[in-house]
């Protein structure tokens, strides 16, 4: 595959990042992973690679609670540049918050495919990775 599956994790929690990376390994799906500890770094990277689809992720796991720029602030900025993207990105919000307010808010963003609460189990991760791949192929 010329262009392997690109998973992006935007989260300040290094333990979580570690578990996702491990779980992704367990899925046996060929992929590469990029990590951002807050929204700001992530949006900067995306903005920089708008016309460079090889560097854009296929799937983003976005946390809500982060320093500097949280998940929602990231989504706001992302919406502004979404139309300029050379390729669509599937964004899943993954948070430990069970606050319905947060869930509602997350789902109101059309950019967000789904809201998933932590912990994100290995098979669940495998499932969304597969679904994203399917969507890409169609």
């Amino acid at each position: 595959m010329q262009n392997p599956f690109h998973l992006c994790i935007i989260d300040d929690d290094d333990i979580y990042r570690f578990t996702i990376i491990q779980s992704a390994k367990f899925s046996k799906i060929e992929h590469k992973t990029s990590v951002f500890p807050n929204g700001e770094e992530a949006i900067t990277c995306i903005t920089d690679n708008l016309n460079n689809p090889d560097n854009l992720p296929h799937l983003i796991l976005l946390d809500i609670d982060m320093p500097i720029m949280d998940g929602f602030q990231f989504l706001k900025d992302y919406q502004a540049i979404e139309s300029k993207l050379s390729r669509p990105i599937s964004i899943y919000m993954v948070s430990s918050s069970v606050d319905p307010e947060d869930i509602e808010k997350a789902k109101s963003y059309t950019s967000v495919v789904d809201y998933l609460s932590k912990p994100l189990k290995s098979d669940k991760l495998k499932e969304i990775m597969e679904r994203t791949l399917q969507n890409l192929n169609v």
Binding site: Y16, S96, V98, K118, P119, L120, S122
Partner: peptide
């Protein structure tokens, strides 16, 4: 949700990973 569930979910994830 943020400050307790986060470490707990981390623990859960870690346990799962540990098993695998």
């Amino acid at each position: 949700s943020h400050n307790l569930r986060a470490p707990v979910s981390n623990l859960n994830s870690l346990v799962e990973i540990y098993k695998m």
